[in-house]
């Protein structure tokens, strides 16, 4: 006798909204960049281009802070899951960096758009990112002021990658919205 072809229908029906689909799509882009970035050899742990931040910036500028939070946190969780880093120290560093960065972006997005473009937001976010990571590292992983010895290196990386990511984000934003944003 053949097994029944149809399972009992699930009592819980999750219908993804258009919002959910959009956030999932954008988070995928951010996760892909995270995984791709992990393959780039880097001289120092902690110095990373942070390519996923390009996606976060675009989401923030086009769809607002709430979506940016969703995409950023989904990226942290799913990205570290894919890299086998979930709940490893690197994951918590990434999470704290993201949270501080999102808080900063939440404030910085109210800067006058006429004067401050995505590059400003990107630089602020990059600095907030290293700030959050260093804070957690100092409190938990390396309870010694020695961690601050590397601050200048991290700050230089944040400046350079913040600028580049911001430029890429503003270029993509200009393409996404033909009307001047």
């Amino acid at each position: 006798m053949a097994a029944p072809r149809i399972m009992t229908p699930s009592t819980i029906e999750i219908v993804p909204t258009a919002d959910d689909r959009r956030i999932a799509r954008l988070a995928t882009a951010a996760i892909v960049l995270t995984v791709a970035e992990a393959a780039i050899p880097l001289p120092l742990p902690g110095v990373k281009p942070g390519l996923a931040n390009i996606v976060i910036l675009i989401v923030l500028m086009r769809w607002g802070w709430r979506d940016a939070v969703w995409v950023a946190l989904l990226r942290v969780f799913a990205g570290s899951l894919l890299l086998g880093q979930l709940f490893a120290p690197g994951f918590f560093l990434s999470l704290s960096g993201s949270l501080v960065s999102l808080a900063t972006l939440g404030l910085a997005m109210h800067l006058p758009r006429r004067w401050f473009g995505p590059v400003s937001l990107s630089i602020l976010a990059a600095f907030a990112h290293i700030g959050g990571q260093l804070m957690l590292a100092r409190l938990w992983l390396v309870p010694h002021d020695g961690v601050f010895y590397l601050v200048p290196v991290f700050a230089a990386a944040a400046t350079i990658f913040g600028l580049i990511n911001g430029l890429v984000a503003s270029k993509l934003l200009a393409r996404l919205t033909p009307r001047s944003a």
Binding site: W115, F116, G117, V119, F127, V151, L167, K171
Partner: peptide, 29 residues
């Protein structure tokens, strides 16, 4: 084309970031 993407405040922000780099290097190194 890339430079056109920078707004006036962005230059200020960039300058501030460079200043933070230099100052932190001077203070910590």
């Amino acid at each position: 084309e890339w430079i056109a993407l920078l707004r006036p405040g962005d230059y200020v922000m960039l300058l501030g970031a460079v200043v933070v780099c230099v100052l932190s290097a001077l203070a910590l190194w």
